[in-house]
Amino acid sequence: MLAEIYTQEIEAILAKYPSDQKRSAVMPLLFLAQREYGTLTNEAISEVGELIGLQSTEVASLVGFYTLYHDRPGGKYRIQVCTDLPCSLRGAQAFADELCEKLDIRMGETTPDGQVTVEEVKCLAACDHAPMFQLQEPNGIHYYEDQSAGSAMALIEALRVKGQVD
């Protein structure tokens, strides 16, 4: 239960908003639930709803709307390559293709070990450092800029090792 494991975090999140506006806490709480459960399962969704007095449906609506929430299983690590116009003008598409080829998966798929998913995303505000991607892991999102397939693969290998240990 989130309420027990993250009592302090939840309190800190709720404290950010006026006491009669608990609903505002739903987005940070969803990140917290995603950190705990990896995927936002129905149980995770209803737990978040209970914390702030929302119906599960209301919470699920947000999960569906925002792209950084995941209610369908994917890799523990999500490599989200920006292939939007500015990055594509600077080789992002070729980079993405090469990465998928090296991992032997298609765009959007997860490696057979269940560790890494490669996804295409829209502009990440790092267009001057294309090709780039962000790594979304259970507890955070980090930018990796000026990438090549080689540098990305090195990171992925390191993650796989880490992922197996954790």
């Binding site: 929302l54 449906t57 699920a60 609506s61 999960v63 569906g64 709307f65």
Partner: peptide, 20 residues
């Protein structure tokens, strides 16, 4: 006051869902 149906996804992919 029973918000037990809602939209899921966005854009043309919006669809009505219920989680109750």
């Amino acid at each position: 006051g029973d918000p037990v149906i809602g939209f899921y996804e966005r854009g043309r992919r919006l669809e009505i869902v219920t989680y109750s």
